[in-house]
Structure formats: structure tokens, C-alpha cells
Design a protein around this nucleic acid. Structure first.
Lengths: 247, 247
DNA sequence: CGGTACTTTGAGTTTTGTCAACGAGGGTGG
DNA sequence: CCACCCTCGTTGACAAAACTCAAAGTACCG
């Protein structure tokens, strides 16, 4: 159960998220300034990185691994409100308390900055503020897209939407463009999928079975998914046939 | 049906949203630069300001009036994803196409900037980018809060949540702090409420009746609402008894 | 092997949506 | 001034979707 070494990637120029994280637009001198205040932290799969309501004394970027942002009601109902992938930013400059639980779903490494120094650097480094604005606008779009899924889609459409989002993300990270056939591993349990989609895990399971029965997806084991026809999946998701989400 | 004159507030220093809009942090010289490229546009209640998918050639701030952001699926299902109040920003620097329909629900005045010049000003004016980041982070929080409502709350809780948000907003705009008893007019039809909450208008109507029957709210006519006990409403909304949404 | 966590499936219930009829209020034109 | 119309809202009966509870099945790990 050992987490990755916290001293990995100690040099920004070798960093795997260098070109996509909040520091993406930084020049060499700006990067050097960040480099001085950064430190790495590792988390194990299942570990809670931040508890909602906690005082946040750092912000940072996910370097590797996956985490979820979730809200929980008093009676235990939970809704995931975001997925954090490598290069995504955690924390909010200018606010002290965390608004959500952040949980590592895989082993995870974060590149952290103490909040105060980071805020100071940000004030004199427009490149950082500008990149963070861009990233936040993207997240806002994603959140609003998700509101349509939660508010208006059927269970079957919700599942198809989630699968198509994961497939599309994997495509952009790896196998070139979104082609007809896609293959990936689900990074989520059925319960986690349910928490994303505002469903119960039983409904998720039933709809996965239904999509499989109807040939929209192929399953090997519980997690390995093949999409034989991406446009069919998009149709099932209720998205425009010709692209759906804007990029 | 005449909309307000488009030449109102031509001077930024008299502008009613001067201290809360995207220009809030600007110094006199920065403001002068914005002043040169700005222009006002008026819209009538019910008018669509922007169609989803349209090319956006301007961005801007709501000066007065209320507008909604909505997404619509091909078959007509619609989900509202945001409410635009005076000082809120419309449009996204760095992207051409509009992602949502923007509809004026009241007569409305916007302070607009052509997108290209605004982007140029923004690059050399960190105060604008910084304020826009702050506003965008607030919107992101609101969107995520709403995701919990849409994904996990019952119809009754959804209605109570919406009412409590509207009550709280009115409180912050007018009658001092959130006291026990609150009175306001709903700015939304039952159908608009349904589109916010991911419900049908019949369910909205039934739950409004139920809340009235149970004494959680009092109704005079269809739109005038009295909340005799705010904490009772918050309880019905499923929020923490002691405040709920962070402000 | 045995246990644990995850997943699937079934049966019955609850919630919400659908379709339809009716009611209230406000404005318009005869 | 009144009748009519149109929009908005309410209510009922029924149908569909999703949830709950329960029981098994599967894969992985020690």
C-alpha cells in the first residue's frame, strides 16, 4: 500500500503536467518562483485529502492519480460534483474553508503550494491568474453540462453520458481523436457512478446491463468497457449526434 | 413595451454595478480604457439575448434586470443552469460559440464590450482577470451546490431549497440579515421553477400546495410568498440547520 | 479455501411524470 | 361594463421510472 515517493518530479521542467496545469503559461522565471514554494504530497487510494469545512492551508495540482469532489448531506446522501484528473487544480485562492470533500480514488500525487505564498505569487504573475481563470471557466462549463444530466436525463441517458465523457477524456489523453471504437477501464465503482449521476447503485447496475444487452457497450469483467460505436452511445446519451459537448 | 434607454449610465463612475461587476477592481485609468470600448444594449422581458451555438461577438455585464442561462435538449427538455442578476458577467473570453441560451426574464440592460477588444484589455489589466476569476469561482460553487439539489434532493426539498435561495438573496439585497420571517415575490413561473429544479410544473405545483398545507409557507395569490419560519424552511430543504449554503 | 468488497438480479413500493380537466386572474374588444 | 380569451396554476387518476429491500453471484486477496 505504499504511495508513490513524494520526491518524484522535483523539477518542474520534467513535470508531466507542466503544459496543462495552472503553471502552463509560466515563463522560466515565473516557474522558478513557483518551484521555490512547492512541495509534493502523496495520498493512498481511498484516502480523504480534504474534509469539507476544513480550513485549507494549501492549494495545488493533481500530478498523477484521480480524485473526486463530493458533497454529503447530513443523512448520508452524497453527490459528486467534480472529478479531478492530472493537471486539475484543487483549492480556491481567496477562501479559507473547503466547500467539498476531496477523496483520492487511486493513489495520487499532488504538487502543493501553501495558500498564502501562492496567492502572493499569483498577484504578481498574471500568467497564473489567467490560466486559472481558463481552467475555472472550463470547470464551470463542465458543471453546467452536468446539471443538465442530473436534472433532465433518464437513468439510461445518464449512464451513457458518463461513459461517453470518460471515453472522450481517454481519447484526448491517449489514443488520438475520438474514433468509432473506444476501449477503456472504468475508474469508478458502481456506487461512485451512482453518486455522480444521482442514482442508486442498483439502478446503475441495471442500466449497465441493459446497455450491454442492447449492444451499446461490451463488458469484460466489471470494469473493462468497449464502445463499438461511439455515435450510438452519444445518441443514447441524448447529446447531439455530431459532437455533443463543446471542447 | 419600451425597454430602458440604452444611453443610461453612460458614465462608469455613476454605474450602479461599478463595485460588483467585472470592473470592480479597476483603477481610474483602467476604467477609462473600458469606458472607451463599452456600449449599452437593452432587451425586453422574454427576449432571447443569446442563442446557444451562436457566435458570440460580445461579452458584458448585466446592469439591471434578470436573465436565465438554460440548456435545451433536442426533444425540448430544458434545464436552467444559472441565474444572471445585476453585475453578473455574460460570455466567455477565449471562446467563440455560446454554450447556453440566455433569456431576459425582465426588461434588462447590459453593458457590452466587443469580445476582441475586451480580451486585449484583459491581457494587460490583471485587475479585470482577477475579478473575473473571483466571480467565476463563485459561480462554480453555486453550480456545484445546485448539483446536489438536482441529483439528490426530493421534490419537496428541491422546492424548499429554491425558496430559501430566493429568500436569502432578497435578504442580502434589502431587508438586512436573514431573520425569522421573510416575505418576497417569486420572480419565476411554476414552469421556470420546474426548469430550475429538474421537475415538471405539476410536481412543483403539488409540492407548493403541500408546503402551504403544512404551514411551511404562506401564499397570497400565486407569487407572493411568506416564510413564517426560515429555519423550518431550511430544515425542509435538507440543509444544515445553521446556515446551509456558504456565502 | 474463505472472506470481503463489489456487482447483479428480482419483487414490491414509492416517487415522480403524464394526460386531462378545470379554475383563477388579467387584459382586450365589443 | 361585461364577455371572452389566454396564460398560468391546481388537482385528479393513472402510468412509468427509479428506489428499497433482499438474496445471490463473482472476483480478488490473504
Amino acid at each position: 500500500m505504499s504511495a508513490p515517493s513524494p520526491t518524484l518530479h522535483s523539477n518542474c521542467s520534467d513535470c508531466p503536467i507542466r503544459h496543462r496545469a495552472v503553471c502552463a503559461r509560466c515563463e522560466a522565471d515565473e516557474l522558478a518562483e513557483l518551484e521555490e514554494i512547492k512541495y509534493y504530497r502523496s495520498f493512498e487510494a481511498g484516502q480523504t485529502i480534504i474534509w469539507s469545512g476544513d480550513r485549507m492551508n494549501f492549494v495545488g495540482s493533481v500530478v498523477s492519480g484521480i480524485a473526486t469532489l463530493a458533497q454529503t448531506m447530513e443523512d448520508g446522501r452524497t453527490q459528486m460534483v467534480g472529478l479531478l484528473l492530472p493537471s486539475d487544480f484543487v483549492g480556491r485562492p481567496g477562501r479559507d474553508g473547503a466547500a467539498y470533500d476531496v477523496v483520492a480514488t487511486t493513489d495520487l500525487v499532488m504538487c502543493c503550494f501553501r495558500k498564502k505564498p501562492f496567492e502572493e505569487v499569483m498577484v504578481r504573475t498574471p500568467h497564473i491568474a489567467h490560466r486559472l481563470l481558463e481552467m475555472t471557466l472550463d470547470e464551470l462549463d463542465a458543471a453546467r453540462e452536468w446539471m443538465l444530466v442530473l436534472g433532465r436525463k433518464t437513468a439510461r441517458e445518464k449512464i451513457a453520458s458518463l461513459l461517453s465523457i470518460i471515453a472522450r477524456r481517454d481519447a484526448s489523453l491517449g489514443q488520438g481523436k475520438a474514433s468509432e471504437r473506444m476501449v477503456f477501464d472504468l475508474p469508478l465503482t458502481r456506487e461512485a457512478m451512482a453518486d455522480y449521476l444521482g442514482l442508486t447503485l442498483e439502478t446503475v447496475s441495471r442500466q449497465m446491463s441493459a446497455l450491454k444487452r442492447d449492444g451499446v457497450i461490451l463488458l469484460e469483467g466489471k470494469r473493462h468497457v468497449t464502445i463499438p460505436d461511439m455515435s450510438r452511445l452519444m445518441e443514447e446519451a441524448g447529446d447531439d449526434s455530431d459532437g455533443g459537448f463543446l471542447v
